[in-house]
């Protein structure tokens, strides 16, 4: 079993940080002999991405490495846990969006990390606050992840929250992005339910929300 094999996780993280896709794939292929796809995701991929995210938070890993690592993981996991697999978690019903902003990298990292962690979710791309509320209501989304870089965009989460409540929606809002990292009180001020400072924290926030929306 792959569980608690910290050496393997560290070795896998190192391959990701060095953009060594072939090396990362080799570790996963070797792990497949004794593990189910979900065991690989939970015991290897998610801990490695969490380790990388923690490194970014601590200043020892760069955003470019986080991005490339999450992309490699998403591609590798798709090979043994395809989007149509019944083992993927499509609960809660989730969507991710870039809110009235043109800085897409954070959203791409979180989307890739969630998919590499075995979740399926809708990618709404870039929407305004009004468009987002409409889509969330139409699709009966239970958890929406909102990414922003500009402060003006982050402040619009307040409108999203207000309009969702007015529409009778109980959708949970998870926010992330630079404004929320630089102002740790901002996520509460705009009415978000949780904040993820890293992609790993976004995964944890989704896990937390599952207990709430279940």
């Amino acid at each position: 079993m792959i569980h608690s094999n910290s050496e393997l996780v560290t070795a896998f993280s190192a391959k990701l940080l060095n953009m060594d896709r072939l090396g990362a794939e080799e570790i996963i292929n070797n792990s497949q002999k004794n593990n189910t796809p979900l065991q690989i995701v939970e015991g290897l991929v998610v801990p490695a991405l969490e380790e990388i995210g923690k490194g970014w938070e601590e200043g020892t890993v760069a955003l470019a490495q986080v991005y490339m690592g999450s992309r490699i993981c998403e591609e590798l996991v798709d090979l043994f846990l395809p989007p149509s697999s019944s083992e993927r978690s499509s609960q809660p019903r989730m969507a991710i969006v870039l809110l009235d902003d043109y800085h897409a990298l954070g959203k791409m990292i979180v989307y890739a990390t969630l998919r590499a962690s075995g979740y399926e979710l809708q990618d709404y791309g870039r929407l305004t606050a009004k468009e987002l509320v409409q889509r969330v209501c139409d699709d009966s989304i239970e958890v929406v992840l909102i990414s922003t870089l500009m402060l003006r965009s982050a402040l619009q989460v307040k409108d999203v929250k207000t309009w969702l409540l007015a529409a009778g929606s109980q959708t949970k809002i998870i926010v992330g992005g630079a404004p929320f990292r630089f102002d740790p009180q901002l996520w509460k001020e705009v009415g978000a339910d949780e904040m993820g400072a890293t992609a790993g924290e976004a995964v944890t926030a989704v896990e937390n929300s599952m207990g709430v929306v279940a």
Binding site: L17, G59, V61, A62, L63, A64, Q65
Partner: peptide, 9 residues
């Protein structure tokens, strides 16, 4: 910045 890319790179 090392926030964006690794110093070695």
């Amino acid at each position: 910045s090392p926030t964006m890319i690794a110093r070695e790179m």
